[in-house]
Design a protein around this nucleic acid. Sequence first.
DNA 1: TGAAAGCGTAACCAGTAGGTTACGCTTCTG
DNA 2: CAGAAGCGTAACCTACTGGTTACGCTTTCA
Lengths: 153, 153
Amino acid sequence: MDEVAGAIADPVRREILVMLRERRMSAGQIADRFAISRPAVSRHLRVLRESGLVHDELAGRRRFYRLDPEPLARLMRWLAPFAPSTAGGPPDERAAAWSGRFDALETEVYRTRRERRSEPAATGERRRAAAGGEPATTHDRPATTHDREERSA
Amino acid sequence: MDEVAGAIADPVRREILVMLRERRMSAGQIADRFAISRPAVSRHLRVLRESGLVHDELAGRRRFYRLDPEPLARLMRWLAPFAPSTAGGPPDERAAAWSGRFDALETEVYRTRRERRSEPAATGERRRAAAGGEPATTHDRPATTHDREERSA
DNA sequence: TGAAAGCGTAACCAGTAGGTTACGCTTCTG
DNA sequence: CAGAAGCGTAACCTACTGGTTACGCTTTCA
């Protein structure tokens, strides 16, 4: 539990989780989206791995990461009793804050997803070629060979 | 968000939140339940305060803390999109892990609540007079005057 | 009104977190 | 088969965390 919450506490790691929600990604693909150095990302990935939030699988010289939502589910399960009207004690002021309990979550999903689209990188500016803008320095890398999965983000 | 997750990441702070779920408590009441020093607890409380998870109100020479679940609700809202079948991308393996989504939460509530009853202290052994055992050194403190709220735990 | 209760802050310390650069290992590729 | 690609680890540094003791301030009580 400590590990899961601790993993979630870092914005880079949260962003990685969001990215992996869509599809699995290689370490390099992930690292390219952030302004920090690759070893830094590598260690973030290790934290996520050790907390069980992601699993890795080698594929040639690349290592793919995929999300495992189970630890997040555990967190949710711990969080749930804090909802008001959940086996009541003296709660009452709680009811207001929890704003609709689990409802309106579906709504929230879309809002969150839309927001994210603009800026995946979190801290700086090294980000290579993001989704939005001009082709820019897309030939930053030769792109000679297998470019199937890379470009899809 | 960082702050909330960070606050949740510490076992002492999590236990404090669980305690405050039942009723508001003074700093001293809270501190007495843990084996760590009182200033340590005081700082945990400050972390919780700054992350908005608790609010304090002075009452004479005592300071009462009460839970504010709203930040936890925000966390839930961030967590929710990780549930499978929530605005699908390529998710599918996710479905298994998320084990029943929000269902079975009600069940979980009772289990968790029962577990806690036995040992509120987390780290050590300084705990004064817990719920269970003999009257022990209950007269550790004179208990001369207003003892309304204190004994109820 | 002076002593004790109740709490927070200050100063200090060890351990951890997160970043960086340098490096080594394995796997493709030309 | 040599070199590049792709990743992780090692070593190092700074900043933050969580604990401790010492102390100061406000409120209550005898």
